[in-house]
Write a protein that binds this DNA or RNA. Structure first.
Lengths: 347, 347
DNA sequence: GTCGGCGATACCCCCCGGGTATGGATCCGG
DNA sequence: CCGGATCCATACCCGGGGGGTATCGCCGAC
């Protein structure tokens, strides 16, 4: 099966219309019809039901649509990464790391600093993007490594290594009655008069129905909270970004947020392996201070625990209280992080 | 980039010899040279350094070799799954599950029976293979779902759901002095005179150096132990397969073994989803009955001693007693167990 | 019934994948 | 130091197939 045929089929399967698909592909319609016919003949399977008035996918066609998209992604990724590898030899961008714009900047800064100091480090480009784009960038070969946050992001199909886990805090306008409480529960946050929880876009970019303002990034969210138009639930580390108009209170029974470093499962290049080793080394240092669960011996890959493990997040009260200073302490002490590599993390 | 070009490049990159690669591809050498040249031109990158006496990979070429293999796997998987989907409509084989020959047969039998009883169930073919082949079968589209065992198997690039965790036992020849102990530690097993731990093949099929016999599967292993040539460390559930010449003793500080169900990250078809749901539900049900510790949120395994209930449960004879009937149940629910004779894999 | 939209078919061109023959470079044996 | 062997690249040719335009057959809409 040639990638051209696959691209043609995916176009038709998405448009469900040969004419429009051909237009999208920049070719005429007859060759497209023939290509699909040939593909069906070669596969020995009907992919589309055509009735000269409508085109629908068969069962096999649905399978090929899904699998074909993944395959095309893989081919495109191979091409892009090869191009990047070719440019990297003389040029700068050795590694591309993608993370959410709203992610904890302290961890990222520490990671970049620590990696830059490692022997054999290559330059790292950082892409900030909205949630749900990271996986795509990684899959398409536009990025080499990502910082993801479970359970919000899917780690589908990647190798991952846990870097840190943290509880969540409620972000409220300064002076709100709830800010006088030392801790909250999820129930306290639902149905607050005038302070709905915001809605985030799903993987497909659309917003779920319901009340609450639509937000795209963390800055918008904090803005809304400061304006008294919403309350928010955020990982503890967001405290570093809060200013005077905002207050944060730990929420005991909110799902724990796990920050992981993820990369495509081909363990490309020593650079990725080095970066991952550096990242896990960071985590290992901080396990003395917080609720950080350190990776055990096994290179535990794409595990995706259902979000039910948060029951005992209560012990993090001290951590939340000192989140601000702790962030600073972490930043300074990271640089003497031991280099006790997780050997062969990329194997 | 067309898959043909990719296949050509991979062949050359693996052979590092245009003539042999061409022979392997069934074409003449000149077209192959041209194809590679065109590919390099299109990518704008040198992939190979040729000196008319030797061919070596450039940095970009190494990247393309790794990424290209993955992409080709994805394309092949798409093709195979499409073919299978086309045959499935009238024909039998709805799902293909792959597991290690040595895996716990009770869990598998329960899963197959429970799924068969579920509404909308499709027939399930079972493939038994050696360790380290499962990932390949899954990646190549020859199988839809696999039972993997961490930390032995890499779950690289798959979605997984934890089914059960269990401790490990030392398998020793009956009558060995250590079998009189109620429990052991790893240290007790290293350097036993005349009873070395065996060597398993790595992901690449080669054996690590060292003493100890080379084994390929569990049956060989048990044979060797029964002959008094080795001792072994196995998941508890292997007790069901032991016979009179063998004895098992819990090893407290051995790594915990986690059985997961894994599938490619496209969540294909409702059938896979149903099977996974059945599998996770299964765990919930059986946790009252056996030494199987059901997948609650995997608590940091390995560090703390494997749960004492494992050790005590290990003494139960129930598991072994039911092995016979469970084996029968398994035989009835496995429709076909072939190495790679997946219907539709013919082409 | 007629018209319009849509996929399939017919026919043509030419690019490109594949073949054979040969050239140029390098290594090796004598 | 030279001839042969080896190996990749080039030159040239052929055929299939990918792409185009023109048109048909079908069917739903008005």
């Amino acid at each position: 099966m040639e990638t051209r045929e696959l691209r043609y089929f995916v176009a038709v399967a998405e448009e469900l219309h040969f004419g429009r698909a051909a237009q999208r592909l920049g070719i005429a319609q007859p060759p497209l019809s023939r290509a699909i016919q040939r593909l069906e003949r070669r596969l020995g399977a009907a992919l589309l039901d055509r009735t000269s008035r409508s085109v629908t996918l068969t069962e096999a066609g649905s399978v090929l649509l899904v699998e074909g998209r993944a395959a095309l992604d893989a081919v495109d990724a191979a091409e892009r990464r090869t191009r990047r590898a070719a440019l990297a030899t003389p040029g700068r961008p050795g590694l591309v790391l993608v993370t959410k714009a709203s992610a904890s900047s302290a961890l990222l800064a520490d990671l970049l600093d620590a990696y830059a100091a490692a022997p054999g480090a290559v330059p790292v480009d950082v892409i900030l993007c909205g949630p749900a784009e990271q996986a795509r960038l990684l899959r398409e070969g536009r990025a080499d490594v990502a910082l993801l946050h479970r359970p919000f992001d899917s780690t589908a199909g990647f190798h991952t290594e846990v870097l840190s886990t943290e509880g969540q805090v409620a972000v409220l306008p300064a002076g709100h009655p709830l800010t006088r409480r030392a801790q909250l529960r999820m129930a306290d946050l639902t149905g607050l008069p005038g302070l709905p929880l915001p809605r985030w876009p799903g993987p497909d970019g659309s917003y779920p129905p319901g009340p609450g303002p639509q937000v795209r990034d963390h800055a918008q969210l904090l803005q809304l909270v400061a304006l008294g138009r919403a309350c928010a639930l955020s990982p503890e580390s967001c405290r570093a970004q809060l200013h005077g108009d905002l207050a944060a209170v730990p929420v005991l029974d909110a799902p724990t947020v796990t920050t992981v470093i993820a990369w495509p499962p081909h363990s490309r290049s020593r650079a990725v392996a080095d970066l991952v080793r550096t990242a896990t080394g960071l985590g290992a240092r901080s396990d003395a201070s917080g609720p950080v669960v350190v990776g055990v011996a096994q290179p535990a890959a794409g595990l995706r625990p259902p979000t039910t493990e948060c029951a005992t997040a209560g012990g993090s009260a001290a951590g939340t209280e000192e989140a601000g200073t702790e962030g600073a302490a972490q930043a300074s002490s990271i640089r003497r992080a031991s280099h006790d590599g997780v050997p062969g993390a990329a194997a």
